[in-house]
């Protein structure tokens, strides 16, 4: 009986300890500077490196400690980052999700712990989880690219679409925006559509494979600039870079340079500096008491092509 009571008490003690230590923030003194966690889907992509670094730098400039965490496109690792951020006493999270559905639970964990989350570039499919979502208007950007695509191919020809990560809403916003234009033209035929996960090397392999089956294509639309560069590399290797028009999306430095050199035709300029700075500023406003943030804040995307590239810089600058 005595052993039973002792064991029960021990169980109760440890159970309570585990229960209450899991999701509670560390108590901090009022004088400690606030901490901002910048959790990025992957730092294997220069666009996201710019996004993360800009967010962290802006948070620093506003007087906060900021650290960047790489989820490596892994939602489970992203969960670990969230749990660690909350347990370590971070006061806000600037977040670039790995998966529009899979990442919702992580945002809700933070919300439950009283930590505001500001999504950057990618959204989660919930409007009651994040404090605010600062998103590129990928759909409208790709409508503009689709229109330009149709004009440059003169409403006819064969083309390929290389998609991004299928779990990212941006992949489908971009594809739908593009198709909302191109599908009106029956003489424009999509001969292949395949995902390369936003990865340059995968896109090169995908393009190489597709060219073996469809050597006579006229255009390629890629869901991001990394894949556009990979596809372009494959076209060079096949001796078809002059024959096939390549279109990307992001506004990265290498594609802007390529457009200036009259190689790649166009891209959609997202503004990662603006997105990241806005997210950090929102966190600052939150710390100062603001709560009425718009759930979704679109950032307009602008098409950059060979005619207007001289007006733009990579990553859009601070516009």
């Amino acid at each position: 009986m005595k052993r039973l009571i002792n064991n029960s008490l021990l169980f109760l003690f440890f159970g309570t300890f585990i229960l209450f230590s899991c999701s509670e923030k560390k108590n901090k003194s009022g004088d400690d500077p606030k901490k901002v966690a910048v959790i990025i889907s992957t730092l294997n992509n220069p666009w996201f490196v710019i996004l993360g670094e800009t967010a962290a730098n802006q948070a620093n400039a506003l007087g906060y400690e900021a650290n960047i965490f790489d989820s490596q496109n892994n939602t489970a690792l992203e969960t670990d980052h969230f749990e660690n951020a909350i347990a370590s006493g971070y006061d806000a999270i600037l977040f670039n999700p790995t998966n529009a559905d899979g990442s919702i639970v992580n945002v809700r964990i933070a919300k439950k712990a009283g930590v505001p989350v500001f999504c950057m570039d990618r959204e989660v499919n919930a409007t009651d989880a994040a404090t605010s979502q600062i998103l590129s208007d990928s759909y409208a950007g790709c409508v503009a690219i689709g229109k330009y695509f149709v004009e440059k191919l003169n409403k006819k020809g064969k083309y390929v679409e290389i998609l991004g990560m299928v779990g990212d809403n941006n992949t489908w916003s971009r594809s739908k925006g593009f198709h909302s234009v191109v599908d009106y033209y029956p003489d424009l035929k999509m001969v292949a559509q395949q995902s390369a996960d936003f990865d340059r090397n995968k896109a090169m392999e995908v393009m190489e494979s597709i060219l073996q089956v469809h050597p006579d294509i006229n255009g390629v639309f890629c869901g991001n600039d990394g894949m556009a560069m990979g596809a372009y590399q494959a076209l060079i290797a096949a001796g078809k870079d002059d024959q096939v028009m390549v279109f990307g999306f992001d506004g990265t430095e290498d594609v802007i340079n390529s457009i200036q050199q009259k190689k790649i035709l166009a891209t959609g300029m997202q503004f990662p500096l603006l997105i990241a700075k806005t997210a950090a500023i929102y966190a600052d406003q939150y710390f100062k008491g603001k709560r009425d943030f718009a759930q979704k804040v679109p950032i307009t995307v602008e098409m950059v092509n060979q005619e207007n590239v001289h007006e733009y810089v990579a990553y859009g600058g601070d516009e």
Binding site: E123, V143, A144, V150
Partner: peptide
Amino acid sequence: FIFGNAVRDASGLIKINDYDET
């Protein structure tokens, strides 16, 4: 080339945050 958001957005009638699904 009747595409894009000009007519919708210029009207000022439709707001993105009125829709859960983008």
